[in-house]
Simulated scan of single mutants.
Amino acid sequence: VCQERLKSGASQAVIVNSGNANCATGDIGLMNAYRMAEFAASLLDIENEMVLCSSTGIIGRQLPIEKIGVGVKNIQMSRDGGNAFAEAIMTTDTRPKRIALEFEIGDRTVRLGGVTKGAGMICPNMATMLCYLTTDAAIDHEWIQEELHTAVDDTFNMIAVDGDMSTNDTCVLFANGLAGNAPINAEHPDAHIFREALRRVMTYLAREMARDGEGATKLMTVHVRGARDKTDAVKASRAITTYALWQCALAGGDPNWGRIVGALGASGCELYQDRYDIYIGDVQVTKSGTAADFDYEKARAVMAGNEVRITVDLNIATAHATAWGCDLTHGYIDENTLYTR
């Protein structure tokens, strides 16, 4: 439904349900998606084609469409509704993910906000996450389409919880132009301001999804520098975030850097055994591919924190990338042995 309706580049609303993915549901599921959109259009008194729809949850079950219809009729529109929306779209998330910024474009005050849901199977490119961004800025459609794609590549496409994927993902940005600014495009003198705001919002939301991974207790940030090219930097950083042995070490607070080396070797990036350096926080644990003389207890103290940063310098060229992930705990197993009950 969304792919069809987004071809025009125009939309006014989105309706979202959680708990049911409306996936692998055939013609009935497609009809129900259109009906959901009709419910919202009727409530808002807008054209059906101006409504997008999203679903998230268990695969293979038909939507309780009549129940959804009743629920939509009971919605009360409110300026504070964004908070309730962020909570309503959650599935295995333990907390809502939301953020809003206010900044100046020319002589006008502009707002940009966003909410996401996602706590597992967010790999390799989005997958099983939903994101809705709204702004009152006036923006050139072609320019923001390119900026959004680029920002997704560096944020949502750089997070992982378990290295797995599933069926439903969405990232939509709505811009209504009510701020009254001159439309932002590549030539606009303040284009960089909006770009930076968009990156801040999406980076925050990406990190919060990784932080709230199923069963997670720690956020992992992996920065790889000195790579041959951006592709290799992405490969290396993402491989570390999805390496189960390292995720388990992270859960246990064990600075077993050999697990990081294993992930690097398996990543497919260009790697020289006598060049790479690895840091856990500020503690250098390898130098030129061999064990550094480091304070083990200091490294353990870093691993005990609720945010752990890993830096890898491949010492080949200048390309770099940052990825985010989390630890792998018994809580992840508990969550995924009981999901459909």
Rank of each mutant, 00 (worst) to 15 (best):
R98C: 01
A13M: 00
Y339M: 04
N181I: 01
A191C: 11
V172A: 11
E307I: 13
L44A: 01
E38R: 14
I144R: 06
A304K: 11
G325S: 09
L314I: 15
S8R: 12
H149E: 15
L112S: 02
H192F: 10
V224Y: 14
A151V: 14
N48D: 08
W257T: 01
V72P: 15
A37T: 08
Y34C: 14
I75G: 08
G69D: 02
G215M: 06
I15W: 05
G226T: 05
E335G: 02
T155L: 08
Y279D: 00
S78V: 00
N22C: 11
C326M: 14
E196V: 09
T116P: 11
I105V: 14
F194E: 03
D232K: 07
R238H: 03
G29F: 01
E102D: 05
P96L: 02
R108H: 11
L133I: 15
K117G: 07
E214Q: 07
A304V: 07
A182P: 00
E297C: 00
L130F: 13
I46A: 11
T56W: 14
R259E: 01
I310E: 02
A227F: 01
Y272T: 00
N168F: 09
D327W: 09
D327V: 10
A249P: 12
A84N: 05
T322P: 13
M31T: 12
D153H: 07
C23V: 15
M36H: 11
L219G: 01
R300L: 10
T203G: 14
V110E: 02
N17G: 04
A263I: 15
V308W: 06
R195H: 12
Y204N: 10
T318Q: 10
A40Y: 12
N181R: 00
A151F: 04
I46T: 08
L245I: 12
R275P: 00
L148Q: 06
Y204M: 10
D313L: 13
I159G: 05
R35M: 02
M36I: 03
T109G: 00
Y132D: 05
V312H: 13
L133G: 03
G114Q: 05
C123N: 14
D153I: 03
P96F: 02
F174E: 01
D254Y: 06
D295V: 03
R207E: 14
K230H: 15
L43W: 07
A84T: 11
